[in-house]
């Protein structure tokens, strides 16, 4: 079991390739190690909030975006930026911001509500869109840190319990064995979550930010568009080639769109 888990998680730990080729999210532009140009990012976020409350949505969006570009993040920051972008009419970018907030805090009811509000104006109505299966919903509701923690703690506990069992008395072994088994099961569960998260990273979600973008059956722009996507529609990025990306809709339809018309979540 251990060997399988190791192989599985080794695959999960592999760095993502396709997503990096389509590095359009703002956070991707800046290296997290770069120091902030000015002091306290918290104070700058508060200043941006003041601008927003004063009605200067563009100024607020610019300030929040600068923080995000410098590599700072929190669910609240993405949420606030989403609100400003939504008020500015950048619905696609706002949806991407709300999705980032939800990625950091899947239980964020405010972000979920505003996301639904923004999506309510989507032009595209996907035919045949199915309810995501249970494991996908569990994956979406689990933060990355929680998945890592679950795996790390249960995996460590498993080996610790094994070690204790080896040096404990016969009576203690009776409960240490089942406890180690439970820890192993939790480790498998955590590993599955990590593998799922890793798969998500390899095929990241993206949001259409252009008012309309043609979808073609191949990467060549000379091909006749098969259909059109509109702002706010969420897609999965399967691969990127140059300035085009192959995407899949939630109902399974696939095609190639211009990368510039997408913002990766």
């Amino acid at each position: 079991m251990t060997a399988l888990l190791v192989l599985w998680l080794a695959a999960a730990a592999a760095p993502t390739a396709d997503a990096s080729a389509l590095a359009t999210p703002p956070a991707a532009a800046a290296k997290p190690s770069e120091p902030a140009p000015t002091a306290d990012p918290g104070a700058r976020a508060e200043q941006a909030s003041s601008l927003y409350l004063a009605g200067d949505n563009e100024g607020a969006a610019r300030a929040w975006r600068a923080l995000v570009d410098e590599g700072w993040e929190s669910a609240g920051l993405h949420f606030d930026l989403g609100n400003a972008l939504l008020r500015l009419g950048h619905r696609g970018r706002a949806i991407a911001s709300y999705l980032r907030a939800l990625r950091l805090d899947p239980g964020d009811a405010d972000a979920q509500a505003n996301l639904e509000l923004a999506r309510a104006q989507n032009v595209d109505r996907l035919v045949g869109e199915a309810q995501p299966p249970l494991h996908v919903r569990v994956l979406a509701r689990t933060p990355d840190g929680a998945a890592l923690a679950l795996f790390g703690v249960s995996w460590s506990a498993f080996w610790l319990l094994l070690w204790l069992r080896g040096r404990s008395s016969r009576s203690a072994r009776h409960w240490l064995g089942p406890a180690a088994l439970l820890a192993a099961l939790l480790a498998v569960g955590g590993g599955a979550l990590l593998a799922g998260k890793s798969a998500e990273r390899r095929t990241p979600s993206a949001v259409v930010i252009a008012p309309a973008t043609p979808v073609r059956e191949g990467p060549s722009r000379t091909l006749k568009p098969a259909f059109e996507l509109h702002e706010g529609t969420t897609v999965q990025v399967l691969e990127a080639q140059g300035d085009v990306a192959r995407v899949r809709l939630l109902n399974g339809l696939e095609g190639w769109v211009a990368s510039a018309d997408l913002e990766v979540v």
Partner: peptide
């Protein structure tokens, strides 16, 4: 700003403690 009205839009809130984002593609310490 276009400042489009969105009735029902939940208001902004304190950004909370900010943390450094991991760059996309950074492998987890698995």
């Amino acid at each position: 700003s276009q400042n489009t009205l969105f009735p029902g839009l939940r208001p902004i809130r304190p950004a909370g403690p900010l943390a450094r984002a991991t760059a996309p593609g950074t492998p987890w310490p698995v």
